[in-house]
Structures are given as C-alpha cells and as structure tokens.
C-alpha cells in the first residue's frame, strides 16, 4: 500500500534533495507556501482563541458590566478548588474510555461481519452508517423520548416482551443515565469505527491468513494472532480519532441528561458551556478552558505516541 520509495526518492518536489543553500531555501518557501492558507485558518481557530483564553484567565471579565479587572490566579484557584470540577474531569475521562472502547469492540465485530462476501453486503454497509448522519441534538432528543418510562418505546417493548418488570426511569439514576449517554455515543459512532476497520480489513494482505489456515489455525487464533496484529494501524487511527471527538462531546449529553441526575453526567464541556455561556463568567471559563487544554494536550501526546508506534502516518 504505502510506497516505501516515494518519500525518499521524492525528496524535494523536483528530484533528490538539492545541495545548494538557495535551492533549499526555495524548497522551504514552496513547502510553507503550500501550507500557508491552511495554517492561517487553523491559527485563527486555535492560536487566537488561546491568546484570548490566557488573557482572560487572569482577569475578572464582566462582559455585562464595568467590572473587568486583573485578579491574578484567582480564577484558577476557584476552578481547581471546586471539587465538582475534579469529579467532572473524572467523569469526562470515564466517558471517553467507556465510549471509545465499546465502539472499538462493536466496530470490530461489525466490520468482521460486513467483510464477509454476501449478496446484500453493500446494502447492509450503507444502512449501518446511517446513524453517523443524524445531528447529535436530534438523536439525543429522540433517545430522551424513547427512554421515557411512561410513553417511550424502549420500556414499553422491553416490558411487553417480558424482559423487564417495572418501567425503568433511565435518566433518573446515575448508572442507567450513564448507560444512556454511552449508548447514544456508541449508537452514533460505532458505524464510523466499523468503516475505518472495514477499510483496514479490505486492505490487509491475504497471504499471512492463508499461510495460517494451511498451518491449521482455528478462526479464533486466526483472528487473534494474524488479523488483529495486521489491523493494529487501523485500530490506532479509530482509537485516536474517536478519543479526541469523545473528549469534545457536548450537544448529545447536554440535550439527553443536561448533566443530571444530580451532577452525575456533567462532563467538562457542559461546565464550560454553563460557566461561559450561561453565567458569562468569562474569566473562570477561560481558566477552566486552559486547564482542559493542558489535560487534552497531555492526552493528545499519548495518542500521537500510539499512532507513531502503530502506523506510519506520522512518518515522512
């Protein structure tokens, strides 16, 4: 698949790396020139907000009154001194871990099933990816309605099929509320993971499998010892992309549980929204945002390490 010679043979855009200084210079200009438009767009959306966040985090910012003033690290003290922020950070990490690992398992199972040649495989693949296109606001509203214990379909059918006794108020109990928000994310994103893994399965060379079958490997050991190692790059990509997106989850949980019951499903993004856009306490929101970004960049570096170890997509 990847062409080993391409990068080295290519070197610069016109043949092997040119030795002369001014040519190197020109190559760099071409490279940065090609990157520049994209970098400008990304700078606007990442560096500019970061500058604002750093500026505001040390101020009491009262957008609605004249009270803006420098307050040192008071905003950080407030955010980090609030025990709820720590439990919400824990909830966010748990949410990402649960949602992504379940999606990887389900996605792999689905990809394996769809990889078998059948008459209707194409149709099935097409239908399976439908949840991907539903806006999170809409899917959360639908879930909320379906899960309602008195007029929702979930409890009704579970009861009428004898799978459940009393109706369950899914969103009123921390455990079942968690099941609900994880199910929502799993429902929405498993197709995406399955697609990536399916792309991997279709690209995996057949020779090692055939060799293993000749050696008498059973289906399970075939999957475990041959397919899974070959799939590692794709698993890594799915893991990284989903983990990042899961950290950013907002609309689905906000609409489905609003952070409740109590504060049990309050993710950090919900806190950000509340402090920033309902209280308009921009200083505290900026401090929290910076802490969140710090934590995320640590996670991101770990995820990039995973990518570097399992794939060559970070390499030149």
């Amino acid at each position: 698949m990847a062409i080993p010679g391409a990068a080295t043979a290519g070197g610069a855009i016109t043949g092997p790396p040119p030795p002369r200084y001014w040519v190197r210079h020109r190559v760099a200009l071409t490279g940065w020139g090609l990157l520049a438009p994209a970098l400008i767009v990304l700078l606007i959306m990442s560096v500019v907000p970061t500058i604002y966040l750093v500026m505001f985090a040390f101020q009491h910012v009262d957008l609605l009154g004249p009270g803006t003033k420098f307050v040192g690290i008071q905003n950080f003290e407030r955010v980090l001194g609030d025990p709820e922020m720590w439990s919400d950070a824990g909830a966010t990490a748990l949410y990402v871990a649960l949602a992504v690992s379940i999606q990887l398992v389900f996605g792999m199972a689905l990809a394996l099933m769809l990889n078998r040649k059948m008459r209707e495989t194409n149709l099935l693949t097409a239908l399976f990816i439908l949840p991907l296109g539903v806006a999170p606001v809409v899917s959360a509203l639908i879930f909320r309605e379906l899960l309602n214990p008195v007029y929702g379909w979930v409890d009704f059918y579970l009861q009428s099929w004898g799978l459940m006794g009393d109706p369950v108020d899914w969103l009123a109990n921390p455990l079942t509320a968690w099941i609900s928000i994880i199910t929502l994310d799993v429902w929405q994103w498993t197709p995406f993971v399955a697609l990536i893994l399916l792309a991997g399965l279709q690209g995996v060379p057949q020779e090692p499998r055939e060799a293993a079958v000749v050696d008498g490997a059973g289906p399970l050991s075939l999957f475990w010892h041959v397919t899974l190692p070959l799939m590692r790059p794709f698993i890594a990509i799915a893991l990284v992309l989903r983990a990042i997106e899961a950290f950013k989850t907002f609309a689905g949980v906000y609409v489905l549980t609003g952070g409740g019951p109590g504060t049990s499903t309050t993710l950090l993004t919900l806190d950000m929204y509340r402090i920033a856009l309902q209280d308009f306490d921009v200083g505290a929101a900026s401090a929290l945002g910076i802490c969140f970004l710090f934590a995320l960049s640590f996670v991101m570096s770990r995820l990039l390490a995973v990518l570097a170890k399992s794939t060559d997509i970070l390499e030149d």
Binding site: V150, Y151, D166, P167
Partner: peptide
Amino acid sequence: TPPGTTSASWDTAATEFETGL
C-alpha cells in the same frame, strides 16, 4: 407520580397531562 418524575421537566409534565396519564 408517574414513573419518570425524577427526570421530568416542564415539557414532560405537560405531555403527561396532555396524554391523560
């Protein structure tokens, strides 16, 4: 109260009355 009261809001309450529950 009907099941779901501990996760109810004003719109669910309205629906519960409207549907005769």
